[in-house]
């Protein structure tokens, strides 16, 4: 091993140790759900967007949220990292606990919360910067600039993009294909090493091959992160998720169970009707 490779390897080891140290705290709470939702409801002005929701989101699993348009699934997702705070008319009631701490408590900093609960959106939205700078962006803001190269490479590897961009990291992210841009956004989201990744229809703007790559990636990501994904594509939910939450019209969480149960033998007739196409 050359001295350069040795230095690289040591840096990787140090970052891994740092991350493992952060994780050790999490693992002492292993049996607890990472997110506990209690009577969470949302209003836009006078209009109720979400009826009281109760759910436990398991750690390091993929939880899919499905339902017809306007059923509140994206509204629910935005509640998790308080993205709804940015909508003036939106009011949120109830509690949403992240490792036992209500994220709506007054002393919670939404920006700090979003470092722990990252988000990937429907349309790839890379910054008009280089591939490298996109991934490094959040790390620089957090001051994690030591061994930046190693951290960027690590995030790109985890996002299954490294082999496609390693020799053009200085090129504009906007020159990547749609599928590559979305994986870059995933790399950007995981670079600061969040615990939870929220994904709002992350593959709906992609072609089938790019979709398959993102789906494979989501399953891999669940080894290290808790993934909550909103999708209109029921087959996608069936393919990649461990748990599925079904919201139906009126913003009601009608059924939340193991994905196999939801797609093989759901308990609720309205859920059965929705997923078999008899409703919605």
């Amino acid at each position: 091993m050359s001295s350069q490779e040795q230095t690289q390897s040591n840096a990787e080891l140090e970052i891994e140790t740092e991350i493992q140290s952060e994780r050790s705290d999490r693992e002492t709470r292993a049996d607890e759900p990472v997110l506990e939702v209690r009577e969470l409801d949302v209003h836009y002005g006078d209009e109720r967007a979400l009826q009281p929701v109760n759910a436990d989101i398991p750690e390091k699993k993929v939880t899919a949220i499905i339902g017809p348009s306007g059923c509140g699934k994206s509204t629910f997702l935005r509640c998790v990292n308080r993205m709804n705070d940015q909508i003036d008319v939106c009011s949120v009631g109830g509690e949403l606990y992240f490792h036992g701490k209500n994220v709506y408590d007054d002393d919670v900093d939404p920006v700090a919360l979003r470092r722990k609960i990252g988000q990937v959106f429907q349309r790839p939205n890379p910054f008009p910067k280089s591939i490298y700078d996109n991934v490094a962006y959040g790390l620089r803001i957090q001051g994690k600039t030591d061994d930046l190269d190693t951290r960027v490479e690590r995030a790109l590897r985890r996002a299954a993009l490294w082999s496609e961009v390693e020799d053009r990291l200085d090129e504009s992210a906007l020159d990547l294909s749609g599928g590559q841009q979305q994986r870059l956004c995933i790399a950007r989201a995981i670079a600061p090493d969040p615990e939870v990744l929220l994904m709002d229809e992350p593959a709906s703007a992609l072609d089938p091959i790019a979709t398959a790559k993102v789906e494979d990636l989501i399953e891999d990501l669940a080894e290290n992160y808790t993934v909550v994904i909103v999708t209109h594509n029921m087959q996608q939910a069936a393919r990649i998720s461990d748990k599925t939450a079904v919201f139906l019209t009126g913003g009601e969480l009608v059924e939340f169970d193991d994905t196999t149960t939801i797609f093989e033998n759901p308990a609720n007739q309205a859920v059965e009707d929705y997923i078999t196409g008899k409703f919605g």
Partner: peptide, 9 residues
Amino acid sequence: QQPVAGDMR
């Protein structure tokens, strides 16, 4: 059609 639930069964 990728049937699910009751249709799949």
